[in-house]
Design a protein around this nucleic acid. Sequence first.
DNA 1: AAAAATAGGACAGTGATGTTGACGTATTAA
DNA 2: TTAATACGTCAACATCACTGTCCTATTTTT
Lengths: 159, 159
Amino acid sequence: MADPIPCPFNESDIRRGIELIYFGYSHLTRMADQRLETQGLGRAHHRVLYFISRQPGLNVSELLRLLNVTKQSLSRVLGELTQRGLVELRTSAQDRRQRLLFLTPDGATLESALFGDLSSRLSAAYAEAGNESVPGFWAILTSLIAEEDRAMVQALDGG
Amino acid sequence: MADPIPCPFNESDIRRGIELIYFGYSHLTRMADQRLETQGLGRAHHRVLYFISRQPGLNVSELLRLLNVTKQSLSRVLGELTQRGLVELRTSAQDRRQRLLFLTPDGATLESALFGDLSSRLSAAYAEAGNESVPGFWAILTSLIAEEDRAMVQALDGG
DNA sequence: AAAAATAGGACAGTGATGTTGACGTATTAA
DNA sequence: TTAATACGTCAACATCACTGTCCTATTTTT
């Protein structure tokens, strides 16, 4: 891959990819909206719940980096979630400056339900498109992620 | 497909898909942010430019439906774009109530540059993941789109 | 031991983009 | 002629993100 390879794809292939990502993301994300609204929460809250569930005990900086938002932005959402008893902050034993993030049982229950909303749609898509489509799907999306963030994303799967 | 098929995917496969869509979308979308900021525009403007470019002459209702936003929301963005001389509204000859949307030459130039920002990333991802990954990628994302919207999305490719 | 760096938290103001409700005009369909 | 439709506007509000600033406690470096 040292040499730039002439792009074998035409504009139409690229635009199709752009559009499908836009619509695919939009449709998937919407699956949780109803439940979130019922809970008086938004998508930002969902993302926080999701990633804490994925990596229990991650610290605030790690979550900031995962979400690619500012601490003030996260602070508002996190504050609401802890106030609501869905998230718990524990001071790290290794470094007392750090706050480690955990879901409470209520938080885990909610995240699980939200996950169910998304997963019914995504697993149906996997099934409809066929097993053999999944590795390609993963590969291209992975390749869209900037190199410096790939390890972080892949570490989600390590837990 | 009449019978519900036992899901062959485990939770980990599903969560991976969710995460990759989230990060993939986020990273791709960011590619245009710098240029947008330089132009004093945002992502909502970009989406409008994109879809008008894709379907010149579409009417306001069609764009509302594509973007899945309210007319008030669109109106603000569209107003800014017409004010900026990037988009042009023409009354339809067939139905004088309708406004048909076109990019101006300046609008087309900008959209083209923005497309270049996204396409360099996406075509690199196609290349990195390999040709054989692309159909699977398309298939799964297509399957994520609700049935009632698929024709609309596929019609983008018809032009 | 002291200085510097770091983690997290809070305050405050602002901006982008989305929503709801309401109202109105012109045009087309019933 | 009446009803429906397309679009436009006004207004207020919500979500979620940003920047700048300041502070305390803790850890690391000098």
